[in-house]
Design a protein around this nucleic acid. Structure first.
Length: 152
DNA sequence: CGCATTTGACCAGCGC
DNA sequence: GCGCTGGTCAAATGCG
């Protein structure tokens, strides 16, 4: 929140601009509903999109999956996961987040934080946890879409 | 004074 | 049926 560059806050994590305008070092970008897909053991080339620093890897899709969960996963809400290289966990993306929970997950020695958009009427949720393999990386998962302009 | 943060407890779903 | 994990809520506290 202090060494932030003048970056235009994205409207919603659902557009190419969001990726291009992401003010942080994006290590990996995942558009999926489960982290397991980016496991080193699984073939992630289908899900994970490596952006690299500077590489504006814009790959977004409306998570249109089958409700039966046969070929695709069922996605009721927009769920987007980011792997960001940052010292801070709470990235200022232009919205106001209110932390509502913290939990220790079993697969991670680091706690997982739960944030919620403090804007009335907006039920967007954010899940932030440090990468178990890369403590300098933070995995941010957005759930839902903002129905209002950024307040910053 | 208002709002964000914190921590513990509670609840639900899933697996064994 | 029991245990475990993940997710959410709610009350209290601190700070701006």
């Amino acid at each position: 929140m202090t060494d932030n560059n003048p970056r235009p806050p994205p409207d919603t994590p659902d557009s190419d601009d969001f990726c291009n305008q992401w003010p942080f070092e994006l290590s990996e970008y995942l558009q999926l509903d489960d982290f397991e897909s980016f496991s080193p053991e699984n073939n992630v080339s289908n899900q994970v999109h490596l952006s690299g620093s500077g590489g504006s890897g814009s790959y977004f899709e409306g998570s249109s999956n089958n409700p039966s969960g046969r070929e695709n996963r069922q996605v009721v809400r927009d769920r987007v996961a980011f792997k960001t290289i940052s010292e801070i966990e709470v990235l200022d993306d232009g919205y106001r987040w209110r932390k509502y929970g913290k939990k220790m997950v079993k697969n991670n020695p680091n706690p997982r934080n739960y944030y919620r958009c403090s804007v009335d009427g907006c039920s967007v949720k954010k899940r932030v946890e440090r990468d178990k393999d890369d403590p300098r990386c933070v995995i941010t998962t957005y759930e839902g879409s903002h129905t209002h302009p950024s307040s910053s």
